[in-house]
Design a protein around this nucleic acid. Sequence first.
DNA 1: CGAAGAATTGAGTCCTATCAAATGCCGTGG
DNA 2: CCACGGCATTTGATAGGACTCAATTCTTCG
Lengths: 239, 239
Amino acid sequence: MDCQPSACGAVTPVENGCLVCKVRLVSVCASLSVDELQMLESLAHETVFPAKETLFTQGQPAHSVYNITAGVVRLYKLLPDGRRQIVGFALPGDFLGLAMRDSFGFSADAIDTVTACAFSRSAYSALVEEKPHLLRRLHQFATHELTLAQEQMMLLGRRTAEEKLICFLLAMQERWAKLRKSSVTVPLPMSRQDIADFLGLTIETVSRTFTKLTKDKTILIVPDGVRLMNLDHMVRVSA
Amino acid sequence: MDCQPSACGAVTPVENGCLVCKVRLVSVCASLSVDELQMLESLAHETVFPAKETLFTQGQPAHSVYNITAGVVRLYKLLPDGRRQIVGFALPGDFLGLAMRDSFGFSADAIDTVTACAFSRSAYSALVEEKPHLLRRLHQFATHELTLAQEQMMLLGRRTAEEKLICFLLAMQERWAKLRKSSVTVPLPMSRQDIADFLGLTIETVSRTFTKLTKDKTILIVPDGVRLMNLDHMVRVSA
DNA sequence: CGAAGAATTGAGTCCTATCAAATGCCGTGG
DNA sequence: CCACGGCATTTGATAGGACTCAATTCTTCG
């Protein structure tokens, strides 16, 4: 099985064309015409990462960029003493490598089974050079990420534990809603520790807050997720 | 005096051409040729905002985008109950309106006297459309901002008060160093409250931490800034 | 010089972290 | 099918860092 130097998942040619790709319309690829899509398809390596496998590590040379097509990826930074901050969760349709820089600014690993379209950065870079509307789309994605990051700064700096968790659950619900039909049941494939490291809390505080929200009847904990039982209240808190 | 609907500073034609602009080489404009620079110059309105004046407010229609040429701007988000998170400080060379969206995602006001090149968003947008290398430069700026935002998330979520302040001072020193010759004296035109709202702390904690670092002989407080007396230690802490 | 705002300092409290233990969950293998 | 081991999660008890409230002190500037 072929392996990129920087990305060792199971690599296969793109099984079904980009045209039938489930996430095309929400991904950067939506900016491409049918012709251009075929060009892209020839550059793509569909890659499967089993749960817990690393896609890439902070500081590592960025040989590839990735378009997530299924599964959830955690993106994080580490301090030398082991403290971890998760800077985001990448969902299907998200693009990793927006900066197109020589090395990655954060680490990424698969939370559940992840499939991604991997592209060699140099080839992708060359394509972007030729297609300004692809660059425009990348820029839209980057500024969207920047907006999310600024909202996360507000959350990390100025919100209480309960507010943090409520905002997180609402945000996840909205993100999943864009990918499939909306639902008050929010999948949470990541661990409590992941949630804690995203919200700037400890695992114990996250667990206690989940318990409190459950007693409040604000949420209902279900296998691999939660059901939001009082959206009004949650929206009011997230304000 | 002319006033844009969304930006009421003192507007004048660009006094000295873009060619002699002090921040050109560190701003988005660096990507433009001399010809293109003249085109840009005809679109620019040099605007002066006195200290404390608002450049724009979160949610407000983005009629203009701005290239800061002098002074410092605080960028922030507010919660309905008044809690504030400063998401960044814009220095000369920084660009406000990277997202080129219909409305601003945060508020901005001048900390000291600020001068900026203001452009109508539609005109700037049209120029970006024509000049892919300008778009490329905007994208570089956006991804750089994104990287900074992710580092700020690490700081807000996982660092202690003392670490936060040290990282902040070092980061400001590095940013100023890029604009003028490097110095261990860091200008701090913003108030303690601004620093607190940037670091996710209270003004009292910021003040106490300044005092502690002074007693440590890590820093020396000088008028409108600090002098870094033990860079080694600070770099070690920021790791 | 005096007023008003900004910054510092002090005392006490609280939210969240820390340390520790118990419980629950799930896949493995007898 | 159920017992077992390992890991994730929950719960409990306590401690501590940052917050809150309050009082000075310092700056700035008319």
